[in-house]
Write a protein that binds this DNA or RNA. Structure first.
Length: 664
RNA sequence: GCUGGUGUAGCUCAAUCGGCAGAGCAGCGCUCUUGUAAAGCGCAGGCUGGGGGUUCGAGUCCCUUCACCAGCUCCA
C-alpha cells in the first residue's frame, strides 16, 4: 500500500478545452478522462488530443496535459476512424486475396485508401463492383468481431525482421527511412501493420464501410516505379451518416458541369473535332461573353489597354522566350517549314501562352518611365497538348482562353500592381458570389537558389512586396516555399469543384525571365535604360475552367445578370403570341435576354420546361395580361406568382441586372 | 503518359447461355388552343465508337484503335 505522499505525486492534472481542470491518477487513459466527463462522451470518443498530439484513447497519460476528446464531429476524429478503416480494408484484402503487398493506407479528406500490389496474390486484382462488395462484406465481418487495435512500439530491427519474413518490400522500404525508437506496429486480430497511429479502441465501431473506386497509383508517387492498385473507401459509425454521404455524392454528380453543360446546352465536345477542344453553344457563348464584358469594363476602368494577337507565332519567338523546345511535351507539334541556312528548323507554333506576343507589342516602341505601368490585356486563346489522361470537362482542356494581361512596370510598382490585381480578383469573385476560394503565395526555396533566375535581393524584395500586398488587401494567403516558378514568385486563387478536387483559377505571377530574354527596356528619369519587371495575371485563369467551376458552384442556377436566357415568355395560347412578342420587344429594349415559347404545349408543360432549364424569370401571358398590359411573373425555383404592369416590371428587372453587375 | 473501368437512337437506359437491336424522354406530323412542373394519337430515328479476328451466327468472345470516367504522374 503506497503512502499518501507517493499517491499525491502520482496524480496528474488534465486541462480541458473549456479551461476546466480535472485530476486523474498517472497513467489514466484518454478513455478514463472521457468517461469521467460523461458517459455519452465516452461512448462517442474516437481518440484524444494530448498537448496537441492525437493519441489512442487507451494510451496512458503520464504527465499534466491539455486534453481534448475527439469524436466524429472533429475532423481529426474522423481521420482516426478512417485510418482504422484502412487497416480493416487491408486485413480484409489479406483474408480474401492471400499474398498481397501493401504500400501505404492513409485517411484522406473524405475517406481513406490503401495502395496494394496484387501481382503475387492467388487471384486477379479486384476490378468490378462485385469484387468491392465482396471486400466490403469481409470488412463488415471482421469489424463485427470487435477486436482491439493494439499499439506496440518496436525496434527498427524487429520491424524489419517482421516485414522481411512476411515478404513486404514496400513496408521494408518505409521502415528503412524511419528512425529507431519511433517505430510502432498496430495489430488488430490477425493483421499487423507498420503505423504511427493513432487508432480506434476496436474494430466494432466501423459498422458501415463503403468502397467507392479503384485506380492505379505509383509507389511513392513516382511514375518510374511500380504501379499499385489504390482502393478508395469511406466508412461511418452509423447507417444514417453513410446514407447522407451517398446522397451528397449523388447531389455532387447533379452539379457536375459536364452534365449541366449538356443539359443546359452551354457547350459540347466532339470526338471528331478532338479531345479537350470544347465548342461553345449559343447559350454558353452568351454566358461567356457576358463574363468577358464584365471583366473588360472593370479592366478599362483600371487602366488596362486592349490588344489582339494571332493564335500562332514563329518558332524563333518561342526560342527566345524559352517555351520552345523546353516545354515541347506539352505543346502541339510545330508547323514546320524546313530549315534555314544554319540548319535550324523554321516554322510556327500554336501559341501555348500569350506573353511572347504581348512582349513584342511592348517592344513596338521605346517606353518612358512615365508610361509605366503598361498593362496589355487580351482574351487570348492558347493551345497546350495536355496528357490524354488529364483531360476532363472544361476544367482541363487543350484549347482555352485566358483573361490574360501583362503588366510592365518598375520594381517599385510591383506592390501596387499586385494590390490592384488582388482587388480586381476579389471584386470579380464577389460579384459571382464566390466565397469558397483559397489564396496561395508561392515562394522560392532559398536552399535551391540555382533553380531560379534573378538574384536573392530581387526575390526577397519581390516576395516581401507580394506578401505585403496580400496583407494590406486583407487577403488570407497560405505561403508555400519552393512552389514558385523558376522565373518568379506568384499568388494563386484555388477553388474546389463539385467532387472536391482543387483547381487553380486566378493567378498573378512575377516574371524576371522574359524581360531579360527579350531585352526589354524603358528610359528612366536619369535618361538611362532600365529593365522593367513583368507581371502575368489572369483573374479567371481560363474562361473554360472558371465557367466549369462556376456552373458547379451555382448548380446551373446562374444569377440573373449571367443567365443566357433571362426571361421566358409563356403565352397561354396562340391568340396571345402577338402580346408575348410585344412583351419580348419591351424587355429587349432594356437589353434583357428574353425568348417566347410559342410551341403548342400546355402552360403546365411550358413551365416545366422553363424550370428544368433554370430560366430565372417566367412570364405567363394570356387574355387578362393583354387586357391590362401586365405580366404574371414566376421566378425559377419558387412557385409563387405575382402580376405586375409590363413597363414597371421591365424597368425593375433591368435595374436588378445593373445592381448585380455592380456587385451590390 | 500509366492502371482500371465504360462506350447501344439527340438524352437516360434495356437486350437471359453467342441466336430477329428495344423502351421512355427529346424530335417530326396530326388533333387539341390550353392559366402555373409532363394533353392525345401517329411517324421517324441505329454500321451497337472505328478497324480487324473467332464463329453457321457477335451488341455480347478475342486483338487493336479512338473517346469518355476515376485516380496516379504532369501542369510554362
Amino acid at each position: 500500500m503506497p503512502d499518501v505522499q507517493t499517491q499525491q505525486q502520482q496524480k496528474i492534472t488534465i486541462r480541458l478545452p473549456d479551461g476546466s481542470e480535472r485530476t486523474h491518477p498517472t497513467g489514466a487513459t484518454g478513455y478514463d478522462v472521457a468517461e469521467d466527463i460523461g458517459a455519452g462522451l465516452a461512448r462517442d470518443a474516437l481518440a484524444v488530443k494530448v498537448n496537441g498530439e492525437v493519441r489512442d484513447l487507451q494510451r496512458p497519460i503520464e504527465e499534466d496535459a491539455d486534453l481534448e476528446v475527439l469524436t466524429w464531429d472533429d475532423a481529426e476524429g474522423k481521420m482516426v476512424f478512417w485510418h482504422s478503416s484502412a487497416h480493416l480494408l487491408a486485413e480484409a484484402l489479406e483474408a480474401l486475396y492471400g499474398d498481397v503487398k501493401f504500400g501505404v493506407g492513409p485517411p484522406i479528406e473524405d475517406g481513406f485508401y490503401y495502395d496494394v500490389d496484387f501481382s503475387d496474390s492467388g487471384r486477379d486484382a479486384p476490378s468490378s463492383e462485385d469484387d468491392l462488395a465482396e471486400i466490403e462484406e469481409k470488412m463488415q465481418e471482421l469489424a463485427a468481431r470487435d477486436v482491439p487495435y493494439e499499439r506496440e512500439p518496436v525496434s527498427k530491427d524487429e520491424a524489419m525482421r517482421y516485414f522481411t519474413e512476411k515478404g513486404a518490400p514496400y513496408k521494408q522500404e518505409l521502415i528503412e527511412e524511419l528512425e529507431d525508437g519511433t517505430i510502432t506496429f498496430y495489430r488488430q486480430g490477425e493483421f499487423t501493420d507498420l503505423c504511427r497511429g493513432p487508432h480506434l479502441p476496436s474494430t466494432g465501431a466501423i459498422t458501415y464501410p463503403k468502397l467507392l473506386s479503384m485506380a492505379g497509383a505509383y509507389w511513392r508517387g513516382d511514375e518510374d516505379r511500380a504501379q499499385l492498385t489504390r482502393i478508395y473507401g469511406v466508412s461511418f459509425p452509423k447507417k444514417k451518416l453513410l446514407d447522407e454521404h451517398l446522397e451528397m455524392l449523388e447531389k455532387a454528380r447533379e452539379r457536375d458541369h459536364r452534365k449541366l453543360g449538356r443539359e443546359l446546352e452551354l457547350f459540347t465536345f466532339s470526338e471528331t473535332v478532338g479531345a479537350g477542344l470544347p465548342m461553345w453553344l449559343p447559350k454558353g457563348t452568351t454566358l461567356r461573353e457576358t463574363l468577358e464584358g464584365f471583366l473588360q469594363q472593370e479592366q478599362l476602368e483600371r487602366g488596362y489597354e486592349p490588344v489582339v494577337t494571332p493564335h500562332i507565332g514563329r518558332l524563333d519567338l518561342y526560342r527566345t522566350s524559352g517555351h520552345y523546345p523546353y516545354y515541347r511535351d506539352s505543346q502541339f507539334p510545330p508547323i514546320l517549314e524546313g530549315e534555314d541556312e544554319d540548319g535550324e528548323e523554321q516554322g510556327y507554333l500554336l501559341k501555348p501562352m500569350n506573353c511572347p506576343h504581348h512582349v513584342m507589342i511592348y517592344k513596338n516602341k521605346l517606353h518612358s518611365y512615365r508610361d509605366l505601368p503598361v498593362r496589355l490585356a487580351e482574351f487570348g486563346t492558347v493551345y497546350r497538348h495536355e496528357q490524354s489522361g488529364e483531360l476532363g470537362g472544361l476544367t482541363r482542356v487543350r484549347g482555352f482562353t485566358q483573361d490574360d494581361a501583362h503588366v510592365f512596370c518598375t520594381p517599385e510598382q510591383v506592390k501596387a500592381e499586385f494590390k490592384d490585381v488582388i482587388d480586381l480578383t476579389l471584386k470579380v469573385l464577389d460579384a459571382l458570389d464566390f466565397d469558397a476560394f483559397e489564396a496561395q503565395l508561392s515562394f522560392r526555396d532559398p536552399d535551391e537558389a540555382e533553380k531560379y533566375v534573378g538574384g536573392a535581393e530581387k526575390w526577397d524584395a519581390a516576395e516581401d512586396a507580394i506578401r505585403e500586398a496580400a496583407a494590406e488587401m486583407g487577403l488570407v494567403a497560405q505561403e508555400e516555399v519552393g512552389e514558385a516558378a523558376f522565373y518568379g514568385p506568384k499568388l494563386d486563387f484555388m477553388v474546389q469543384d463539385a467532387l472536391g478536387r482543387a483547381w487553380q483559377l486566378g493567378t498573378v505571377q512575377l516574371d524576371y525571365n522574359l524581360p531579360e530574354r527579350f531585352d526589354l527596356e524603358y528610359v528612366g528619369a536619369d535618361d538611362e535604360r532600365h529593365r522593367p519587371v513583368m507581371i502575368h495575371r489572369a483573374p479567371f485563369g481560363s474562361l473554360e475552367r472558371f465557367i466549369g467551376v462556376l456552373i458547379e458552384h451555382c448548380g446551373g442556377d446562374f444569377p440573373l445578370w449571367l443567365a443566357p436566357e433571362q426571361v421566358r415568355i409563356l403565352p397561354v395560347g396562340d391568340d396571345f403570341h402577338d402580346y408575348a412578342r410585344r412583351v419580348q420587344a419591351t424587355l429587349r429594349e432594356k437589353d434583357l435576354r428574353a425568348t417566347v415559347d410559342d410551341s403548342d404545349a400546355t402552360v403546365g408543360y411550358k413551365i416545366r420546361e422553363a424550370e428544368t432549364q433554370k430560366v430565372p424569370v417566367m412570364l405567363v401571358v394570356g387574355g387578362r395580361e393583354e387586357e391590362a398590359q401586365t405580366v404574371a411573373v414566376r421566378r425559377h425555383g419558387s412557385g409563387e406568382q405575382d402580376t405586375q404592369p409590363l413597363d414597371d416590371f421591365a424597368e425593375a428587372l433591368a435595374e436588378e441586372v445593373e445592381a448585380q453587375m455592380r456587385g451590390s
